[in-house]
Design a protein around this nucleic acid. Structure first.
Lengths: 151, 151
DNA sequence: ATCATATAGTTTCCTAGGAAACTCAACATG
DNA sequence: CATGTTGAGTTTCCTAGGAAACTATATGAT
């Protein structure tokens, strides 16, 4: 006779994961219609309206390894959305910046993000959304979460 | 001059993903010390104290494909935690059930889940945790989220 | 100046999941 | 009872990320 255990659904971590996965997958489907993944979107958004950044900084900010950024950048370059240039100051370093077409594209993708957000949280009142935001942001601060951590 | 866009952090979906990833990775590290992944834990927990289930049902409940369940089950069988048996009623079907050692093991893993939960949300008062739970569960219900969706 | 060490980026190997083709058993229907 | 169809499970191929080894450049110590 096994001892009874708390249900999975008793844990906030489980509930958060359910919602997070659903919201992310819904967004991923919208992005996929434009031929973009969530990680690609995150990188593009990070560089939008910014001066080019070295891959290592992007790795830190996105919570990914440098190796993953190398390959992610390769894909975006292949799609004509990213430019890789050698750093002037450091012979080892590079900079990654958006192409013109990427700069034109990102606002369209941002619209998808807004739409996804609206669809997923339409049932919450503005006050409830602010409460949720506050609880989450305090958790982010308390746990010392920094990057995006795409996956 | 690119047009300004809403910040990533303005989206609840982004904040939820940050917290979810952090909580899941913290849990994954605890489980890894016992040689178990999050997906393996979810499957083990689902079968704990239950009669054996066919892979197809586990796939539905966990939000994974049947192919993924096949491989997940293979790994757990390799670890001596799962038993695969042919279904008596249906020559195509199988049933997956926990071994004795798995039944003894799951409560220990459940303790890790409890500890992770406590660590990640210690800064919220009981009332705040209930508020968060309520907002999340209403979202789960509204979006029609059913499975675990491990990843 | 030389050499050790650290850092930037890449590459290789590994893991894990999804999509879709595939096998085999069950079932319906004529 | 043959036959077409559905359903269960497996397998193959593909994608994407992490860990760690590897290359090349920079930096610091002597």
């Amino acid at each position: 006779m096994p001892q009874p255990l708390p249900e999975l659904t008793d844990h906030l971590g489980y509930r958060i994961r359910q919602v997070s996965n659903h919201v992310s997958h819904a967004f991923a489907r919208k992005l996929a219609a434009r031929g973009v993944t969530v990680a690609e979107w995150a990188l593009l958004r990070m560089l939008y309206g910014q001066p080019p950044l070295p891959p290592s900084q992007l790795a830190t900010r996105m919570g990914m390894t440098r190796g993953a950024i190398t390959r992610l950048a390769d894909r975006l370059i292949g799609k004509g959305l990213l430019l890789r240039a050698p750093s002037a100051a450091d012979g080892r370093a590079q900079t990654l910046g958006l192409t013109e077409s990427a700069t034109a594209f990102v606002p369209e993708l941002a619209g998808l993000a807004d739409r996804n957000e609206a669809e997923c949280f339409a049932h919450l009142s503005p006050a409830e959304r602010e409460t949720l935001r506050d609880l989450l942001e305090r958790t982010v601060a308390r746990l010392g979460i920094t990057g995006v951590a795409v996956e």
